[in-house]
Simulated scan of single mutants.
Amino acid sequence: MHTVDQENVSATLTVVVPAERVFAVLANPTTHPAIDGTGWVQEPVDRATLTEVGQIFRMDMYHPDAQDGDYQVANKVHVLDPPRAIGWLTGYAPKGDGHLEFGGWFWRYDLVPFGPSETEVTLTYDWSAVPQSIREYIWFPPFGPEHLTNSLHHLADLAAPTSQGL
């Protein structure tokens, strides 16, 4: 199930996996290419587990509409409440000097444990803080809402106890 609001889109899926395990998969940047429902996330540049608000982790990306297709994003953790919530702002270094700028959109996962072995996971992509200057050249959301549902199914597969993902 997914919903699209004026400024965000979300999807929810109940998985037969404890919340701690789902959170551990989300806090591991090396799993993000496999979770991604768009196929844009390629490889993590920063592979350290996400452990604190303000932590930066970069990802190599690919999108056919980007200049040369390949680009890199710098994500900044802005929500970290194990095992209930994790989220990050997506930014970039436009001048290549290490100074990061954030466009006003973020990803957030909310986990609600249902007993010891089930978790309701809601993935939200929110662009409510994106300034008009960016909206003039990026359409929001830049993907269909089915990509969030795809991501949740990928996450469920990775977090499943039989998975070799962890």
Score class of each variant (00 low, 15 high):
40 W>F: 15
40 W>K: 14
40 W>R: 15
40 W>N: 13
40 W>V: 12
41 V>R: 06
41 V>Y: 10
41 V>A: 11
41 V>M: 09
42 Q>A: 10
42 Q>W: 05
42 Q>T: 13
44 P>R: 14
44 P>I: 06
45 V>N: 07
45 V>E: 09
45 V>R: 13
45 V>W: 08
45 V>C: 07
46 D>S: 08
46 D>Q: 07
47 R>V: 14
48 A>L: 13
49 T>S: 09
51 T>E: 09
51 T>R: 08
52 E>P: 01
52 E>Y: 13
53 V>T: 13
53 V>R: 11
54 G>D: 08
54 G>L: 04
55 Q>V: 01
56 I>A: 01
57 F>Y: 11
57 F>C: 10
57 F>N: 10
58 R>F: 07
59 M>V: 03
59 M>D: 02
59 M>S: 12
60 D>Y: 07
61 M>F: 06
62 Y>W: 12
62 Y>A: 00
63 H>D: 07
65 D>V: 04
65 D>F: 05
65 D>C: 03
65 D>A: 08
66 A>K: 08
66 A>G: 02
66 A>C: 08
66 A>R: 10
67 Q>L: 04
68 D>S: 04
68 D>Y: 00
69 G>P: 03
69 G>E: 00
69 G>S: 02
70 D>F: 00
71 Y>I: 03
71 Y>A: 02
72 Q>M: 07
75 N>R: 09
77 V>S: 04
78 H>P: 02
78 H>Y: 08
79 V>A: 14
79 V>W: 14
80 L>D: 08
81 D>S: 14
82 P>K: 09
82 P>C: 12
82 P>W: 00
82 P>M: 06
82 P>D: 01
85 A>R: 15
86 I>F: 04
88 W>E: 04
88 W>V: 06
